[in-house]
Nucleic acid binder design. Structure first.
Lengths: 285, 285
DNA sequence: CGCTATGTTGAACAGTTTCAAGATGCGTGG
DNA sequence: CCACGCATCTTGAAACTGTTCAACATAGCG
């Protein structure tokens, strides 16, 4: 999905993560919409040209499968921060793959409590969990300016019926999601505020690095505010602030102005019981 | 998986959920192991005879696909309560479908804190999330006496490559899991002890009823202890006890001696913001 | 330059944990 | 059938972690 496939190799995606320059947008397919509400770079017209495709989170796709996937794409969407990208309770909520920028899914209860369920980075497939069940009013919102490919639910389901590679790929991504959710569940259930923050920072750092394949110790783009982190971690924004202050004071990590710096990965990992196996793909056969 | 397929219809599965009489176990396929460590009823030899197959949580399977799935099964396992059924970190952790009894997955940190990630009821596929990524030391333990079908990971992966129905079915089950995890995440992040317990009780009651298709208001089998509930909800056993006492006093629900009674579904649902859409299958096309 | 969103810090409060003691229930063996 | 023993559940009181409310600081943006 979202132009999956191909083998890993040297990729320059820094511009995608940091919202730098825009990519070319010529030669669209028939019937494709481009909703241009923001400034992030739009994905290329042909999936084969898509840098995202090479990222580690996709299973290899052959050229003909890639072409089939590209036919499923119904639109390209660009949107500024804060835009509601998707409402899963809607009858025909589509699937999306983030091409550039960050988004997040969340649920809000009647009394206004918000729980962020996941952050979405470039290359992530969003909404696959709602292929099967209608979720409970989950919203996807752009955290930064975002560009994404849109795939209609019905088309994807129809294609899955006779395209094992697509089904397997989606199953694969869902499995990875589930592993991440298990870790998050452990955080909310059994870790202290400080440990939760440390763990989330390490997870997002690992996910960013899987995409960039560079700069292991350096500053990483990190758009979420304390409020976002609090709503993801089941805390108040004040608790996040205090936890962040303590981690910074101990020289472990630093979050400021949209940038995350992991200063002492080993002590951080020891603090929160971090292990990275759950993000690393398993050999499939 | 675990004999999926077929359309809903009148089914008598009370015995499976309550661990009553055993089913016949003749005519096994070649090379199939039967590990008999306990007393629960074993699944039938032929997937086509499997009552579980008819349950709502599976997508329809044709007869030939059913036969293919049956060929993947490597063993049948019966085990008493407390048995470690599976260790996901193991190199070749298999997949399992529960046929009778309850199980649960959990992770335990170095300092002994346990987080239960999910409960598994008859018909549930366990371990699919580890097809793609090696989880972080997740263990599956029998909560009651359990019988289950075992499928080797490699065989399933190989079959998925060219069997879209299987891939789609697994994607479907993973999607349902993810929706449940989202709800659980909301619980741990944003609900009080009382609300968490109410919500979990409603969810498990709904899942039991999806299998039994009977007895909507009556007593339901409910094996988890306060300790299990606490570890699933991110609470202490004492907090669960206090929450349960309050819910009972208000005439909302009652948990005692392995039996759950939902006394006032409407007020319970209002209390915790329960909605059932996330368990109900969406029309696929 | 000033507005607004975000981050920081303090103090009172609340919900949950922890520790502890006792009650209840259930299976086992006499 | 009853007595014992162990696991589970219940209840109380103190301690703790995080929440809430409030004031202020800082940064980014028009």
């Amino acid at each position: 999905m979202g132009c999956p496939g191909a083998l890993p190799g040297p990729v320059h995606l820094v511009y995608v993560l940091s919202l730098g320059r825009a990519a070319g947008t010529h030669g669209r397919a028939d019937g494709e919409t481009v909703m241009d509400e923001g400034q992030p770079p739009a994905p290329p017209a042909r999936c084969a040209d898509c840098g995202i495709r090479r990222l580690a989170m996709f299973r290899p796709f052959g050229p003909q499968q890639l072409a089939e996937v590209q036919r499923l794409r119904s639109a390209i969407r660009r949107a500024p921060p804060g835009t509601e990208l998707m409402r899963h309770s809607a009858h025909d909520a589509p699937l999306m793959t983030i091409y550039a920028g960050w988004a997040f899914s969340h649920t809000t209860s009647d009394d206004g409590a918000r729980q962020i369920l996941d952050f979405h980075l470039p290359g992530d497939l969003v909404g696959a969990e709602h292929l099967a069940v209608k979720g409970t009013d989950t919203l996807v919102e752009a955290l930064t300016a975002v560009s994404a490919c849109v795939f209609p639910r019905r088309k994807v389901l129809a294609e899955m019926e006779h395209n094992p590679a697509l089904s397997a790929s989606i199953a694969w991504l869902l499995a990875r999601d589930e592993a991440m959710l298990h870790e998050r569940l452990f955080s909310l259930g059994r870790r202290s505020a400080e440990e939760r923050l440390a763990h989330l920072a390490l997870e997002l750092a690992a996910r960013i690095r899987l995409r960039r394949r560079v700069d292991v110790g350096g500053p990483l783009p990190f758009p979420p505010t304390h409020r976002h982190l609090a709503d993801a971690l089941g805390l108040s924004a004040e608790a996040v602030s205090r936890a962040a202050t303590r981690l910074r004071a101990h020289g472990l990590e630093q979050i400021a102005r949209g940038v995350l710096i992991i200063r002492d990965p080993d002590r951080l990992a020891a603090l929160c019981g971090w292990r990275d196996e759950y993000l690393v793909p398993r050999e499939m056969l």
